[in-house]
Design a protein around this nucleic acid. Structure first.
Lengths: 215, 215
DNA sequence: CGTTACATACCAACCAGTCTGTATGCAATC
DNA sequence: GATTGCATACAGACTGGTTGGTATGTAACG
């Protein structure tokens, strides 16, 4: 079975199950997704499901890992990563985050981690922990660039890169929630734009505007 | 039955049911809360429940209304509301929001609206609408002070009070989610503090620090 | 005597998880 | 290289408990 093997080496059936789990739980949440739903979506029967996962909770954990790793990879391989100046990477990340949610028309499907964090934090300790880790990694990834940018461009500034990175995660998650609720990701774009301006303020007025400024 | 009567005139049994619904759904979400749970918590039987609510979804809507109205009232009656200067009310609101979540030890129970918005936006259109309205009212309430403060203190500033108010809601919601996940509302405090500094920047450097500044 | 406000028993659907069966590959044995 | 044996990878039927909702009764009240 080898459930701890790198996910890319998992048998196809198991990957299909996890993919289906990600898709369904992302849209409906944990409780509203039945293992029969997952089986049907993956073209597998119950026998197959419980051969690979000992419980529904376990596939949820695998789904969080997979989703999380996927997003992680998207950002690790994004063009902005190659920019030499860490401050360019900071703002490049915001641009990339904005673009990766599609235009104002194309609405976001939301974040699986946010969904499960909200739904299960009080009832499923292990899932809560998995979500916490996912958020934490997302923050630390940003924090790295932020700290380098601070050292290079504003060493005397008073902000704490860790706190700013957490605010970033907060804004992303909050925005995705509001985007779902309002059926438009315009909020997400506007919030990221404001966060960008906050960063400008933190780094002093070296206005390296990557987007358009206001009319 | 008169389900549209002002909630304060509802019979006690009905209010008990809604209160129980708020408490349970706030902690476990919609799907993980059974109507039997609600009945037990309210000390009512199924018959009583379905006498007042025609479905589980309907009590969820009532719960959102009640929770929403309750929070609304908390803010409407908060001390900061009496401050003459709108900018003082702006920062006073942040202080009040911070305090109303308790100290760093006492952990937040989360926001029912955020919970249901996340869980049901894609599957229950009416609930999604109810959550959207709730967020919207929360934003507009802040927007009012913000617009007045801008007119009085920074009429030439470029920010849009509506966008800033939405960012506020975003940060609150995102923070509550991260607070649940990390089992500490320290994130919420740090995020609000940063938002306060963002507002300072928007309103120019008239440093009216209500809290302590950084060491 | 009709309406409101519940209580209780009940039901059909659903759902996570189990059990048993079976096809397939692979390795040791003859 | 045929046979045996065993593990893996599923399929599909089954189950026990749960759940939203209903049907029916009945006590109080106006």
């Amino acid at each position: 079975m080898q459930s701890t093997a790198s996910i890319s080496e998992w048998p196809e059936t198991k990957r299909n199950l996890v993919d289906a789990g990600v898709r369904l739980m992302r849209a409906r949440g944990f409780n509203a997704t039945t293992v029969d739903d997952i089986c049907a979506a993956a073209g597998v029967t119950k026998g197959g499901f419980f051969h690979y996962f000992k419980s529904k909770e376990e596939i949820a954990k695998a789904a969080v890992s997979r989703f999380s790793a996927g997003k992680s990879e998207d950002f690790r391989e994004a063009p902005f990563r190659k920019l030499a100046d860490p401050l360019d990477r900071v703002f490049g990340r915001l641009e990339f985050a904005r673009k990766s949610t599609g235009g104002t028309t194309h609405l976001t499907k939301g974040c699986l981690v946010g969904m499960l964090a909200q739904e299960l934090s009080f009832t499923h300790p292990e899932l809560r922990g998995a979500c916490e880790d996912s958020f934490s990694r997302m923050a630390i990834d940003f924090e790295t660039d932020l700290a380098e940018a601070k050292a290079a461009h504003a060493p005397q500034a008073e902000f704490d890169p860790k706190e700013v990175a957490m605010l970033y995660v907060t804004i992303i998650q909050g925005s995705l929630m509001l985007a779902k609720t309002s059926k438009s990701n315009a909020v997400l774009h506007r919030n990221l734009e404001q966060f960008r301006q906050y960063l400008h303020a933190l780094f002093g007025r070296s206005d390296r505007s990557h987007g358009k400024s206001r009319a």
